[in-house]
Each structure stands twice: as C-alpha cells, then as structure tokens.
C-alpha cells in the first residue's frame, strides 16, 4: 500500500554559522520560515505543524511563494528530512526530481548517468540495462546520450531525469519546480507518461507555479505559506484562492474536456 502520512511534523534547521544575537527576536515577514532561537544555536522553522495524508492516486500540486517551504516539504515527503518534531511514515518507492544537477556527474555520459540515477532509486544494474533503450527513445536524445552530461542543456537534463524516474515505476513521484525547462512538445509526452504512472501505481506531488502544468497533472493542491499548510483541497479551489483567479478560466474547451472540468467555477468548486 502506497501511502504518506505526516503527523504534526516540524522541520527546524539549526544555523550554526549565524552567530549574530540580533537574529534572536527577528521574525521575518514574507519570505522564509520563522527564525527562532531556543538554545544557543539560531533555528529556522522551515516547516511547522504539517499534517498530510496521501494515498494511491493522489496527484497534489504544491503552490506558495518563494521560501514558503515547498521544497522542504517535498524533502520531508521523500524521507530526506525526518521531522524534528512530530512524525512521518512513508511507504512506497520514492523517486524525487529536485535539483537536476545533483546525482548527475557532468563528466560522464548520459547513459552512465541514467545507470547511476537508476541505482540510486533502488534499481539493480540489470533492471536498468533493460530500460536504457526505452529511456533513450523517450528522451529523444539519440547520440547525445554518449556525450558527457556537461554538454547538455537544462532542458535535456530534465528529459533525462524524467526519462529515468518515469521508466522505473516509482510509487511516489516528487517533482520540484525545475522541470518547467522542457519544451511544450516534450511536456505533452511527459504528461501522458506521468498520468499513466500515477494512475498505475501511486502518488504525485508537484511543486509548480504554472497553471497549465498544475491543471494537467494534479487533482488536488496544497498551499504552503510560512512553513504551514494554509489550504489543502481540490486544485481549483486552492489555486483560485492562492492566485485570486480561476485557473480553468482561460483554458481551451478541448483541454477542459480532456481533464473533465466545466469552464465555470461551480458552487462546490471542483471535482
């Protein structure tokens, strides 16, 4: 059973090199978590009292301004940060795409990088060898896969990373904002694959600001603000509240038909 449960979780970062005592009573306004200091070491409360339960088939869009805790939340859900207070339980094979440069070696070829990333995500060498052709075809990188990764553009790296995570059947897919760097045509292709993947096996959490991408991939949304969940509900409600306008307003009838939404925000707003 694929599931993510987080109970009253907080993530506090100790800031060891911030010696200044003036930080002590400073609570920043809009950007960043609250800065507190209970002991000698100043602390940034990046996440505060998070309660989330996600189950099979949940496709969650993550919205919120910079420093609201979106990336930290994704890492909490990935199990990279274990909550400093509260608890979390993640069941399922997690595949994150956070930073496209990390876990990829610029000096070695695309093929080699596919292998290493796959191994990191819990695959065996044999399993990856079977998937390499499929990934190569999906990414459309062709002969470029034999070139060192430093010759790749950002978009090409995104293709590679997406190719790997979508080919290994992860159960929990966590995507940070970076994947917006690919072109529309590829995104179309990736969308189908991601939808397919989520329908088959799991949970998707996707941090993004673009209405189009959120609408295509997600059915619910979480609005993060100052390290807290400000709102958790249907995508349409949350994005409307966050952006102050209905994300479905400007979509073409074709798109709306495909994702099964009516052009006007109805009373209960959404599904």
């Amino acid at each position: 059973m694929v599931s993510i449960d987080v109970w009253n979780a907080s993530v506090d970062f100790p800031i060891f090199d911030a010696k200044s005592r003036s930080l002590k009573k400073l609570a920043l306004g809009k950007v960043g978590g609250k800065i507190g200091s209970e002991g000698r070491v100043p602390i940034i409360e990046a996440l505060h009292d998070i309660n989330i339960s996600l189950r099979h088939g949940d496709r969650v869009g993550l919205v919120g301004h910079n420093g609201a805790g979106k990336s930290t939340l994704l890492r909490l859900l990935a199990g990279i940060y274990e909550p400093t207070r509260g608890s979390s339980r993640i069941q399922g094979k997690v595949a994150p795409i956070f930073d496209l440069g990390v876990g990829m070696d610029p000096e070695i070829s695309g093929f080699e990088n596919i292998m290493i990333r796959g191994l990191f995500l819990g695959m065996s060498r044999k399993e990856m060898e079977k998937r390499v052709d499929d990934i190569a075809e999906f990414t459309e990188l062709g002969d470029y896969l034999s070139m060192p990764l430093r010759t790749y553009s950002t978009g090409m790296r995104v293709r590679l990373a997406l190719g790997v995570v979508t080919s290994i059947d992860p159960e929990i897919l966590l995507l940070d904002e970076g994947i917006g760097a690919v072109d529309a045509a590829f995104l179309e292709k990736a969308r189908d694959r991601l939808n397919d993947l989520v329908a088959r096996s799991g949970i998707l959490v996707f941090a993004n600001h673009s209405d189009d991408m959120l609408v295509e991939l997600c059915n619910t949304a979480i609005w993060m603000d100052e390290g807290q969940v400000k709102m958790h509900g249907s995508l349409r409600e949350v994005v409307t509240a966050y952006k102050g306008r209905d994300p479905y307003e400007h979509l073409s009838p074709d798109t709306l038909a495909r994702i099964g939404q009516s052009p006007v925000l109805s009373g209960n707003g959404g599904e």
């Binding site: 339960s53 189950r55 949940d58 274990e82 608890s87 979390s88 619910t220 409600e237 707003g269």
Partner: peptide, 19 residues
Amino acid sequence: MQHTSTVDRPAAPLAPDSR
C-alpha cells in the same frame, strides 16, 4: 471540501522511530 483520502488516516505513532 474535505480531501477524500484523509478518511483512512491512521493514528499517529506514540513516539517517532527516528532515534
């Protein structure tokens, strides 16, 4: 609208197993 999947939310463990 309440998010549907919170229905089967299990109770929090008594103590986190981190340590």
